[in-house]
Design a protein around this nucleic acid. Sequence first.
DNA 1: TGAGGTATTGACCGGCCGGCCAGTCAGTTA
DNA 2: TAACTGACTGGCCGGCCGGTCAATACCTCA
Lengths: 210, 210
Amino acid sequence: MNTTPATDSPAPQTRDAEATRARILDAALGLFAERGVADVSMRAIAERSEVTKSLIHHHFGSKEGLWDAVKEHAFARYADEQRAELERAEVADAELLRNGVVNFFRFLQQNPWVVRLFAWAHLEGDPSCGRSDAELVRLGAERIRQGQQAGVFRDDVNPVNVVTHFVNVCTHWFEARTHHAQWDGIGSDDEFLDDFLKVFLDGLAPRKTD
Amino acid sequence: MNTTPATDSPAPQTRDAEATRARILDAALGLFAERGVADVSMRAIAERSEVTKSLIHHHFGSKEGLWDAVKEHAFARYADEQRAELERAEVADAELLRNGVVNFFRFLQQNPWVVRLFAWAHLEGDPSCGRSDAELVRLGAERIRQGQQAGVFRDDVNPVNVVTHFVNVCTHWFEARTHHAQWDGIGSDDEFLDDFLKVFLDGLAPRKTD
DNA sequence: TGAGGTATTGACCGGCCGGCCAGTCAGTTA
DNA sequence: TAACTGACTGGCCGGCCGGTCAATACCTCA
């Protein structure tokens, strides 16, 4: 159903620094995403990754060093995938935008750990994630702008705000999932996405010139 | 500019249990919102509220008891204000919805501590906040449904999803503010709100029947 | 005025925290 | 084979954690 870095990786048979680093990163990603950095001890990470606490310090220097490495690791996958998606598409029209939103939504749906990781980084005020995906937003906004010039999107809105609009909707949907789950009459991921796309895409259509 | 419960409350001159409780709650609200529950010590709260750690235990029992009290306290203000707003309005049309969104946006804008508090609670998986505002969502969705029946909103979308849509946009805007701030070309709160409302309200207009 | 209750204090507890360090062990190079 | 590097271990450190408790200061009301 989704990537679960929290579960055990293959057991260590021989010395392999790279594999060990990866096992530690996976364990830390899972625990940090689940409970937040402040609430996870180095001992817990050591236990889950089947490695001594000292070894984590050996590889990552400190808890903060490990946290930085985890964020960088997780964000790299995210950014690569999103950038590839953005650069693959060639024309800027409603169908492209729809696909872009759906792809973004699916990525979050399939990577709940990443969503939670970023949520914690946001609350911490960590600037590194935002700085990195500024490039993605720039690319997305550029596409919207092209669509506006081509007349397929209304041009009385800031393209960056359009991107922010759908990013916020999708991100918060998954961040606050357990929260929404208690609301009467709320539906599935897909129903929500469908309804959102109806309103979003129609609202973005060019205004009639009457 | 906004309510700042983090700053010092009036100094204690005489014994007043109620005032002391309030001072502790304010200090805890500020610190929890800023750094998250796990990263705030009882000592830090004691220091900020100019009270001994033991006294906090006397009044709230435990750290978790204090956290619960803080959430309940903060949420009560939020829910009261939002419910009053929802019940005041009488008819369900586009103008009412616009006002509802603007009010919600302004409330978050003026209560950044509450926004962060809820964000931490969400990540913790705390169900209490979501359960409480389910009632607000129910009220809001009911208004949308009335508008659909009156023909002022498109009726091919789930009203709950409409509410979730704008709640997500507004909430995440403020939750990830420091994150967005690094994006090129992003504007002010008000510019974002304006652009969002254009797309949202036009997208929600009834479809032409051609 | 004095008795009772409670708000408030400061000393103290066991336990866990992140980090450090001396030392062991495996693989590589000469 | 001998010297060397770096992955890896276990034990220890000072310090902070949440929580407890007996003693005290103050208010209330009989």
